[in-house]
Simulated assay, not measured.
Amino acid sequence: MSDIPTPYGAAGGLVRVYPARILERPTPGLVWLHGGGFAAGDIDMPEADHVARTLADAGTTVVSVDYRLAPLPDGWEAPATEPGRERAGFPAASDDTLAAWDWLLTEAATLGVDPARLAIGGASAGANIATGAVLRLIQNDRHLPALVLLAYPTLLAEQPAPEGELRAALDARPAADRFGPDAVRGMYENYLGGSVANAPLAAIPGLATHEDLAEFPSTLIVAGDVDELRVSSEHFARTLASAGRDVEHVIEPGTDHGHLNRPDEGDAASLTLARFAARLAALTP
């Protein structure tokens, strides 16, 4: 494992590389982004470090991205170990992700990674950033990942209200019901620095049309069971499927939002990471 500076424009930044723990090279590669509502989180949190270590142990070289965070919303407390880089809203995190993607492509041979077996993914807000980065790669006719891995993503700033069994499950577990419309819209407004109206598609990728997704890579989405954000991932999966793209949407039983950040609470994180590892291992040149 090593922290390596990589060019994020004038802001500076780094990626943390977790080499695959196997002898045979080249390996699959994964660019991974933690969550945190666009304004929190770091590459030491379990959603970044534990995920990367587990997937590296399973045979994938993981590049964890220390992307720039959005400004702290009102009422949020700054972390005790705030990174030295200045905070910046969209498109800073997206730009950092694309810089990390380009860096991995350039350094693939040095890292022992197969450029034909590259993936990108993330959790929660990190999944949004990863999805938006792929849309920017498509828009600019650039090298695409072979696989996209998304854990309980937020993809819509104004998502439909949950209905039926999901609404009932949220009502029964009030502590899990923390992503109502005002909270989600506010998170995006903070990320965008203003209204969500007419926001770039890369910031709200759930608004993508069939045309936007015509070249979108094979995708695995693992959603939380009792998680209002599940609505946006289900919407995105339906759009991908109706566009003729390869997509699998899985609801991890018994989970609420953020289970990859709580690997010691039951088997849910292990199950999700096993799903991701299997799809990465199945990538073929």
Rank of each mutant, 00 (worst) to 15 (best):
A99Y: 05
A99N: 10
A99C: 12
A100N: 08
A100P: 08
W101T: 01
W101A: 06
D102P: 01
W103N: 00
W103K: 02
L104D: 01
L104N: 03
L104F: 03
L105D: 01
L105E: 02
T106Q: 12
A108G: 04
A109R: 08
A109N: 04
T110Y: 00
L111N: 05
D114S: 06
D114G: 06
P115D: 03
P115F: 01
P115G: 03
P115S: 05
R117Y: 10
L118W: 07
L118N: 00
L118Q: 07
A119V: 10
I120T: 02
A123C: 11
S124E: 07
S124W: 01
A125C: 07
A125W: 01
A125S: 15
A125P: 05
A127Q: 02
A127Y: 04
A127F: 03
N128I: 04
N128A: 11
I129V: 12
I129S: 04
A130D: 01
A130C: 07
T131V: 06
G132V: 07
G132P: 02
G132D: 02
A133D: 02
V134H: 05
L135K: 07
L135S: 00
L135P: 00
L135W: 08
L135I: 10
R136D: 14
L137K: 03
I138V: 14
D141S: 06
D141T: 09
R142L: 06
H143N: 09
H143Y: 00
H143M: 10
H143R: 15
P145V: 08
P145A: 12
P145D: 02
P145G: 12
A146H: 02
L147C: 07
A151E: 14
Y152H: 11
Y152D: 03
T154S: 13
L155D: 04
A157K: 12
E158V: 15
P160K: 13
P162F: 03
P162G: 03
E163K: 05
L166Y: 05
A168E: 15
A168K: 14
A169E: 10
L170H: 11
L170E: 07
A172M: 11
A172G: 15
R173V: 15
R173I: 14
P174A: 12
A176T: 06
A176E: 11
A176M: 12
D177C: 05
R178D: 10
G180E: 05
G180F: 04
P181L: 10
P181Q: 10
D182G: 09
D182N: 13
V184F: 09
V184M: 15
R185G: 08
R185S: 14
G186S: 12
M187C: 13
Y188E: 11
E189K: 12
E189L: 13
N190Y: 08
N190G: 15
L192P: 09
S195F: 12
A197G: 09
A197W: 06
A197Q: 14
A197T: 15
N198M: 11
N198K: 12
